[in-house]
Design a binder for these strands. Structure first.
Length: 312
RNA sequence: GGGUAGGUAGCGAAGCGGUCAAACGCAUCAGACUGUAAAUCUGACGACAAUUGUCUUCGGAGGUUCGAAUCCUUCCCUACCCA
């Protein structure tokens, strides 16, 4: 008989200090970090996405950091599939997988699994976008209602992208997305999720400070470089990122430096709020009140204690 | 001292006799979301009851009117201009 393997996941909103804590823990428990962050996977934006420091990257093995160019597509489904392979591999080397990230959907895909069929059709998707243009979103929604009523119940009419994705799958395979979504993969590990929580006010202060630091660390140069390489938030989704988009608009003269700074902070706060809404819904997460002054070591200590007490 | 423009809910800003608790934007809060998720989308937002409900608001005080944020008088304040 063998016990089910345990995986540790550290979640929380942006600027909650996940990165430092997870590195500390990985160090102590002989772990490797699986970054569950939809933007840190990309190269060329270490400052804007607050990637782990060079030092951290060197001291602990990280996965899904700086692996793709901003014109390469990636998504939560693929992340889950590849991530699970990596988790198996980490276990096979007798190490502990430590998931760390703020992209809720990615984490869900990784630890709970989405259907694994890879369905993507550029042509169909393009056709659907053309239809959207010509006939509007109501038309597409009607189409979905006809083709996959169950999904149309779940997907709000205004969420065009999801309507399109559902239709894309239907036309590419003849299968309904609502049916596919019932085929969840087997997950051979159990995840203990711990969330870092702060009083809203403190979190917002941390966010504001972090944005100021990003400027000092060369955010503007980073974005300039992205632009020089031809990336733009209008055509490369990975670059449609808080902190990048605003700087691009600043360079394009859309607003002043002050306005840009203000907007980055504001949008980051909003992002954090959405993350909290997402994570709050997952009742499996154990929340750890992080307070203000605590350092990564102390917090890591607490996380470890809880992790040890977590039994299946 | 004179002139002009203003003072509206957390801020910005509409409204200029009834349909105004008062448009709209922002901030804030709450929520949805299984393959672009740092994205996309929804709702609440004077107070209280928390669905049709009640109460207190539109610088202050008076007044006109069946009825005022909207008209009149007066006072206070702000900005700019002339002294």
């Amino acid at each position: 008989m063998r016990s089910v393997k345990k995986v540790l996941a550290i979640v929380g909103p942006t600027a909650s200090g996940k990165t430092d804590i997870s590195v500390e823990i990985a160090r102590r428990l002989n772990g490797e970090i699986i970054s569950a962050d939809s933007r840190q996977v990309y190269k060329g934006m270490p400052v804007s996405t607050s990637q782990p420091s060079e030092e951290n990257l060197n001291s602990v093995k990280h996965h899904f950091i700086s692996e793709l160019n901003p014109d390469e597509e990636f998504n939560s489904g693929e992340f889950g599939i590849i991530g699970r392979k990596i988790i198996d591999d980490i276990f096979s080397r007798n190490k502990l997988p430590v998931i760390c990230g703020g992209s809720g959907l990615y984490i869900r895909s990784l630890i709970d699994g989405f259907f694994e069929e890879k369905i993507e059709s550029k042509e169909i998707r393009e056709r659907l976008y053309r239809e959207l243009n010509d006939r509007g979103e109501d038309y597409l929604y009607e189409e979905l209602r006809r083709v996959d009523p169950e999904s149309s119940q779940i997907i709000p009419p205004r969420k065009v992208r999801r309507v399109i994705r559902a239709l894309e799958i239907y036309y590419a395979t003849g299968k309904k997305i609502s049916e596919l979504q019932k085929n969840l993969p087997e997950i051979n590990f159990k995840t203990f999720q711990i969330g870092l929580s702060y009083q809203r006010k403190i979190l917002y202060e941390r966010i504001n400070q972090r944005v100021d630091r990003m400027i000092e660390e060369g955010l503007l140069n980073e974005v300039r470089e992205l632009m020089n390489r031809g990336y733009h938030y209008g055509k490369n989704y990975p670059v449609d990122t808080v902190g990048v988009k605003e700087v691009m608009k600043y360079f394009e003269g859309e607003f002043s430096f002050e306005e840009m700074l203000h907007l980055i902070k504001q949008n980051t706060r909003r992002y954090a709020k959405r993350q909290l809404t997402w994570f709050r819904k997952d009742k499996r997460i154990l929340w750890l009140e992080a307070g203000d002054g605590e350092n990564a070591d102390e917090l890591a200590e607490k996380v470890l204690k809880h992790f040890e007490e977590f039994h299946l």
